[in-house]
């Protein structure tokens, strides 16, 4: 392999390759995948001069450490964390030059869950169905990082307008998700909507890239029938038989058989991806939400 590559020194709890996802295959049962905190992965790419859809590393809670074989510019965004190069402190949220053979340590998240590590040139694993993303539901794309794994890097752009630092809001202490109307809202009682809005939920430790699971009161159903499988979207608030709402994230199944009470506004999905287990959570039903260009 060329020396345009890095080696994983410490893989971390769950570190995977992500880009903007695998689109256009949902009718075949292929999840979309892609970075859960897309605004953060796009900023990381911008900081190193990559196009927004270049593949980056997404870490989970404990960070990771990598050793590039040749000097490369990197940037760490998303969940704030200590960053160092061969033991010397380096900047978070800014371009950092890592010399050949030096170890880039991305520490445990101080706040939030997922940090993003962009490399100038992007991670150049072979795309599968147009995307380099790891899909944890169906196993498409590269396997999650393991200690000693070597991943190839692409060629950095020769000329690019780089930014020096990017402001990023810290993850909120309370997760407030605006919830737009869902297809099966009428399967739930007014009591259920009241429960969603009163903030008695917490983010469950069973959350993953497939869904943000919750702990709290069971939502009261108005309709008790069975639902034939129907198409699902990122942000769908699906209610399984135990009544605890699950917010579907990027690796969600393309169809599902439990009713969807609402859909989280696209602009709030990055915050959902950064809410650590135990974070208080509240759903605010709204009729409309202001769209942002960063909404997926």
């Amino acid at each position: 392999m060329t020396d345009r590559a890095f080696c994983a020194v410490r893989a971390g709890a769950l570190t995977c390759v992500q880009d903007e996802g695998r689109h256009g295959h949902a009718h075949l049962g292929v999840p979309r995948s892609g970075a859960l905190d897309l605004p953060a992965s796009r900023v990381a790419n911008r900081l190193v001069g990559n196009p927004p859809g270049a593949a980056v590393l997404e870490t989970t809670l404990t960070g990771c450490a990598v050793r590039p074989r040749r000097a490369v510019t990197v940037a760490v965004t998303g969940a704030p964390c200590p960053v160092s190069v061969d033991g010397r402190p380096a900047a978070w949220g800014a371009p950092v030059r890592v010399p050949a053979g030096a170890v880039l340590e991305v520490g445990a998240a101080v706040l939030g869950v997922r940090s993003y590590v962009a490399f100038a040139g992007g991670i150049a694993v072979e795309p599968v169905l147009g995307s380099r993303s790891t899909d944890l539901l169906s196993g498409l794309g590269p396997a999650p990082l393991t200690d000693g794994a070597v991943l190839p890097l692409g060629h950095p752009a020769e000329h690019y307008a780089r930014v020096d630092a990017a402001p990023a809001p810290g993850p909120p202490r309370e997760l407030v998700l605006r919830m737009l109307p869902g297809p099966r809202a009428d399967w739930f009682t007014q009591n259920a909507f009241a429960a969603l809005a009163t903030g008695r939920y917490r983010v469950s430790a069973a959350s993953n890239r497939i869904g943000l699971r919750t702990e709290g009161p069971a939502l009261e159903r108005a309709v008790h029938g069975e639902l034939p499988s129907e198409g699902m979207v990122w942000g769908a608030v699906q209610v399984p038989p135990d009544g605890r709402p699950v917010v579907f994230l990027a690796d969600h199944p393309t169809t599902g058989g439990y009713p969807v009470v609402g859909v989280v506004a696209g602009a709030d999905l990055a915050a959902a991806a950064q809410a650590a287990p135990g974070t208080p959570l509240r759903f605010v039903p709204v009729r409309h939400a202001v769209r942002t260009r960063q909404a997926p």
């Binding site: 689109h23 256009g24 949902a26 009718h27 034939p228 499988s229 129907e230 198409g231 699902m232 979207v233 393309t254 169809t255």
Partner: peptide, 15 residues
Amino acid sequence: VREIVPAARTVLLDG
């Protein structure tokens, strides 16, 4: 439209 997803009795149009 990004995705057209048929299912048992529905068709989802996403994006």
